[in-house]
């Protein structure tokens, strides 16, 4: 196989890791919304933790994006 093509294929496959981050983010925001609907008064106070969870989850997704970027551009 042409190494250039293999590189692109690898980059495409690497971005699949973002799907995992997407699932995680869906879980986080869905649960936050469910909790916020049960107890709206507590929702504002937990916003910081929501963003913390979002950041940690998305950081793992960013790693796979990084792998793809390295394959493409480095």
């Amino acid at each position: 196989m042409d190494p250039q093509a293999a590189k692109y294929l690898g980059a495409g496959i690497a971005t699949l890791g973002m799907a995992g981050a997407g699932i995680g983010l869906g879980t986080i925001f869905g649960n936050y919304l469910a909790g916020a609907l049960r107890n709206p008064a507590a929702a504002d106070g937990q916003f910081g933790r929501l963003i913390f969870g979002f950041a940690v989850t998305e950081a793992l997704g960013i790693f796979s994006l990084l792998v793809a970027l390295i394959l493409l551009f480095a």
Partner: peptide
Amino acid sequence: TPWALIVFVLLGFAAGVLNVL
């Protein structure tokens, strides 16, 4: 290559979270 890319994507991620906050 590729070190600056790695470092700056992670820094950019931090900046993105900061932007959101």
